[in-house]
């Protein structure tokens, strides 16, 4: 019988502990596939963040490190500069990257560290129980904004791609989503570009991925996909924010 679908060798044979409908598993699979398709698994070092995807160090079938909350870009830069032959990716959530690790990501981008950052934006703190994230939408309820995010009290959400696009350092920035098959395919294409950019020594690249958190949002997986496409994507516009390869030489 012909095998139609199987676990890519870029992922370990471990049962993932993500909730039903969570977007992390989809992004993990994409990265797992790319590690094989690009032939880089055996020279890759991945960074697992603090947050739901802290367990990523058990899921990716490559060398992994788990740094302090938000410090992934600095740890990545340390590895990459110490071993330029390695491919280094930093997998981070919105609390990790957009809140506690803001300085780290901005300066890694400004220095154009030759690393690949995968930024999962699900507008909420998942692991700690659905608290407000720097990416929580205006009006959106969380366990620390029970009446909805009031921008006069809680401030406005962070638009990471737009912010980083104001810097000269980044080589490639794109916002994708994993709410539909079409968008998953697009996300894989974007991730392939940025891993290839690192192989080609191009400098800092980041892919922001709008991802579902049905548990944190109090929605069903189906509702969460719909909400990602209709509400989140309306606030966080998908698209390429920086592509130095398209700029005049």
């Amino acid at each position: 019988m012909k095998k139609l679908f199987s676990r890519p060798e870029g992922l370990t044979d471990t049962l993932m502990r993500y909730c039903p409908g969570c977007g992390h598993g989809i992004v993990h699979r994409i990265i797992g596939e790319l590690l094989i398709e690009l032939g880089i698994r055996e020279r890759t070092v991945g960074i697992a963040p603090v947050g739901c995807s802290v367990f990523a160090d058990e899921y990716f079938n490559c060398d992994m490190i788990q740094p302090p909350h938000g410090r992934g870009p600095a740890v990545s830069a340390g590895i990459k500069r110490a071993r330029p032959e390695c491919i280094v990716f930093s997998y981070q959530g919105d609390g990790d990257l957009g809140s506690i690790g803001t300085a780290a990501i901005i300066h890694a981008a400004a220095r154009s560290e030759n690393i690949t950052v995968v930024f999962i934006n699900n507008a909420i703190f998942g692991m700690t129980g659905g608290q407000m994230a720097p990416t929580t939408l205006p009006g959106m309820k969380s366990t620390t904004s029970p009446k909805g995010r009031d921008v006069r009290k809680h401030g406005y959400p962070m638009k990471v791609c737009e912010m980083l696009a104001s810097l000269d350092g980044p080589y490639y920035l794109e916002r994708c989503a994993v709410d539909t098959v079409k968008n998953v395919v697009k996300t894989k294409k974007a991730l392939k570009i940025v891993f290839q950019n690192q192989i080609d020594d191009k400098g800092f690249c980041l892919i922001e991925i709008l991802s579902m958190c049905p548990t944190g949002w109090g929605q069903t997986p189906v509702q969460a996909k719909k909400w990602t496409g209709e509400v989140m994507s309306a606030y966080y516009s998908l698209g390429v924010y920086r592509d130095r390869s398209k700029e005049a030489k």
Partner: peptide, 19 residues
């Protein structure tokens, strides 16, 4: 680095890479 926080974490990376 941009701070001592970044510096110690770069060390973490470089040393974890065996250097």
């Amino acid at each position: 680095t941009e701070s001592e926080i970044a510096a110690i974490n770069m060390l973490f990376g470089a040393a974890a890479a065996g250097k």
